[in-house]
Amino acid sequence: MKIVYHSITFLFFLLFPFLALAHDVSSADQEILRAGGLLAYVRVGATHMLTGYDHLLFLAGVVFYLNSFKDILKFITIFTIGHCITLIGATYLGVTANEHIVDAVIALSVLYKGFENLGGFEKLKITSPNLLAMVALFGLIHGFGLSTRLQSFDMGENQFLAKILCFNLGVEVGQVLALIPIIFIIKYSRKSKHFSAFYKAVNWYLVIAGIGLFFYQMKGYFMGH
């Protein structure tokens, strides 16, 4: 019980610094990109990953389901390959889509992961899709979300590919930085006898958050047009 309390408290303090970052990230990012060189793209990529709660929620969902470090490494690698492909490819080719729609699909990925972790497919007596393939697919979608985000900035024409790669590098740095405490919390909470309740709570939260984010993005899509 104490461990889970600690986990929730830790979760709060872990997220607390983002309260400061959460304000006006876009405009600040644009100024950083204007003023800085390639390192600015690394920084903005990392910041976007660390403050992009949809990506973090999905990652938390993926990691929550896994027990061994080997599995975590495998799934995260697949997710990383997926998002690298679309982040680099779509940005370089100038392929973009409405941000709200892309983020709505990403929200559904969060919902999907919570649903799957809670055994939703088994309860509905449906064969669940291959987990690794789904993570790869969602990796592609998250990468496209990151790409649309990157393309919303004024990148100029100079060193275009280098800027994309640096943003991608920043995303990976941010992902690693985010994963360390997430894995720590999950590993730590597993020791508690109330882990089952914590597991359900977090995954139900992912389902609720996924639905909430989906409707939030759809509202943005319809209200913004």
Partner: peptide, 24 residues
């Protein structure tokens, strides 16, 4: 174009922690 920043993240974060706590 910048809808993420328009969402009050502090509400999202605090709400998330509270929701996880309640669900737990």
């Amino acid at each position: 174009h910048h809808h993420e920043s328009s969402f009050p993240k502090w509400i999202f974060i605090l709400g998330s922690v509270v929701l996880v706590g309640i669900l737990f």
